[in-house]
């Protein structure tokens, strides 16, 4: 990977650091047992802390807690299925001023998720109603990688409960790249 010096596009992108990546969002439903059960069955995760099916919830959590990796699930937007493919998978039409449209317009239309860092302050219980804020944390200078040229964009989502106490965070980093700069010989089948 090689670095380019800061350029005009990077200067424009850098003005977004510290600003919201997306609007604040409220979970459509509180943490609940049916969704936990759905997850437990889908991932075949039989940790008894998540479902007290035998009435033997004797863990130190003292009752059902949600699987920690469900954190982001609770605040996923309600999808409008019609047209979802045309929107590239976005649950609904969103108009937000963030670096994504700026990068898309400059030709960096490819997107690859590179890092996810989840931190859990406490486990969630049925009834917890979450909301979140998303803040842009970092934007790299232009990098040349095996996927071509592009910019790394990092944002942090903070998850809060109804009392505005932080329950968890997620740092997320993507690489926005220009597909025309890909060297196919270096791709190796991965996308």
């Amino acid at each position: 990977m090689t670095d380019a010096p800061p350029d005009e596009l990077h200067a424009r992108l850098a003005t977004y650091i510290g600003k919201p990546m997306g609007p604040p969002a409220v979970a459509p439903d509180p943490v609940n047992v049916p969704m936990i059960r759905h997850w437990v069955d889908a991932l075949d995760d039989r940790n008894p802390a998540y479902l007290d099916e035998d009435g033997t919830a004797t863990t130190r959590f003292g009752g059902i807690v949600a699987p920690p990796a469900m954190l982001q699930t609770w605040t996923m937007g309600r999808p409008r299925i019609e047209g979802i493919a045309e929107r590239g998978g976005a649950p609904d039409t969103i108009t937000v001023d963030n670096p994504i449209p700026v990068l898309d317009a400059a030709g960096y239309v490819g997107t690859l998720a590179t890092n996810s860092e989840l931190e859990f302050v406490r486990y969630l219980r049925p009834g917890d109603r979450l909301h979140l804020t998303m803040e842009i944390d970092a934007i790299s200078t232009r990098k040349t990688t095996s996927l071509g040229q592009g910019y790394f964009l990092t944002w942090v989502t903070t998850y809060l409960d109804a009392n505005d106490e932080v329950v968890g965070r997620q740092l997320f980093r993507i690489f926005k790249f220009d597909p025309s700069t890909i060297d196919p010989a270096k791709l190796g089948g991965a996308s």
Binding site: N47, P67, S116
Partner: peptide, 23 residues
């Protein structure tokens, strides 16, 4: 992330609290 969590807690047991998953 869910499978990573499951892989670790299948080993660590139900008393384990996952503090972070950084991948």
């Amino acid at each position: 992330n869910g499978y990573v969590s499951r892989f670790v807690t299948d080993w660590a047991g139900p008393e384990a609290m996952v503090r972070s998953i950084k991948i």
